[in-house]
Design a protein around this nucleic acid. Structure first.
Lengths: 217, 217
DNA sequence: CGCGCAGGTATTGGCTACAATACTGTAGCC
DNA sequence: GGCTACAGTATTGTAGCCAATACCTGCGCG
């Protein structure tokens, strides 16, 4: 079971790094060799990843990386909008002074990253900000759901980060969230987070428009 | 795998019917006999149920029914509040005439059930209403999450249904949701659903107060 | 030349046996 | 009499094996 967790994480990380393409078949034997473990462990790992919604398994046809359509990505983000809204609200309700300091520091570094055009840096800070908010909110149930949803979104998340001009737009949204949390404004923290993620949904929609104007998928 | 799904459902149903107590150990051998299957299948089922958050498994100590504390039940309901709010909003946005008819019918039957004091009937209609809204909303991602959360809540849900006077309170809330969806008022549908589930959270809190005034758990 | 059928191969599904680990009860010692 | 250590038992974790199923290839027939 110790080995099992490692394999689960290994495959998950590989997927997150984009080493497996969507719809790619995950042959058990291959994974055995790749992670130097037994088929038993691999099968258990695939089961777990199926439950996480990262892979799908068809009867007698094995496991593949689950393809997340754009419409599904939007659905996922819609759910994230409300759940992260809850997290922001709770963070605002119970943030300590130290928490506020951490958040404002992240905000300042974000502004610097945008100013110097360091997109990767900004993307990391974005993840850090959301993670810190979740930590402050201490809402285990919400955290679990957000993490699970996030795991399914990586591919689209990556596409999003490459949309030019997004960082400048999202910066002010992030700063509004931080400000609301800092002054303990529960309602505005939630609203700010919702607005922020709404703009992510808009960006996803735009992505779909430009990629395939006629196809729904 | 066909057998496997059956066992998963079987155990889940048993838990939902309250046949297993929280913290009760689920010995693999026992389940093998009970469902007339092999340990292999049982183990797979336990894994799946672990992913659903219904059981927990400790290394070399086996599986137990996961104990959902009151605070966790409240967390779960908080998440449900925002996600079901999303569902209600979407239902309002895209409900057909037939959908509205179905919903108003459920609403009328709810009122009747309350009038005649048929609590079980009302409880069933409650489930039916929420299920119908999810169906109308057609939001797969949200539905999955709500169902998962619901599965973890059964025990507390049961306790809640026994609180005297709750049906009368929730009836008007349900009717407000139905009315908002019927006239396509997205914002009010979400608000109404949130208010409704907020009152559920209040009831849960009250339950905690009366049960153990000093203990946090 | 194309379509359908059949056999072979690859891959997964399920089972049994074995190993490792934790719990429990008992006996001996302090 | 109580505590500790040891041994036995119960239960889970792991591995390898056989069977079932789907896919692919080749052959035959129309």
């Amino acid at each position: 079971m110790a080995a099992e967790v490692e394999v689960i994480d290994g495959i998950r990380e590989a997927v997150l790094r984009g080493e497996f393409a969507p719809k790619q078949r995950l042959v058990e034997a291959e994974l055995c060799e790749q992670f130097d473990t037994s088929r038993f462990v691999v099968r258990a790992a695939l089961r777990a990843l199926e439950a996480e919604g990262i892979v799908e398994r068809l009867r007698n046809k094995g496991a593949r990386i689950r393809e997340i359509s754009l419409t599904e990505a939007i659905e996922i983000t819609e759910v994230r909008r409300v759940v992260e809204g809850l997290v922001a609200a709770r963070a605002a309700a119970q943030a300590s002074e130290a928490d506020v300091t951490r958040l404002t520091t992240i905000g300042r570094r974000m502004r610097e990253a945008v100013a110097t055009g360091e997109l990767m840096q900004y993307s990391d800070l974005n993840a850090e900000l959301h993670a810190t908010l979740r930590e402050v909110a201490q809402h285990e149930t919400a955290n679990r759901i957000i993490e699970r949803l996030h795991g399914q979104m990586v591919r689209h998340q990556f596409a999003l980060s490459r949309v030019p001009g997004r960082s400048a737009v999202s910066l002010v949204q992030h700063e509004r969230i931080i400000a609301a949390v800092a002054r303990g404004d529960v309602a505005d923290a939630e609203a700010a987070m919702r607005d922020h993620i709404s703009s992510v949904i808009d960006a996803l929609n735009a992505l779909g428009q430009q990629a395939s104007p006629q196809a729904s998928r």
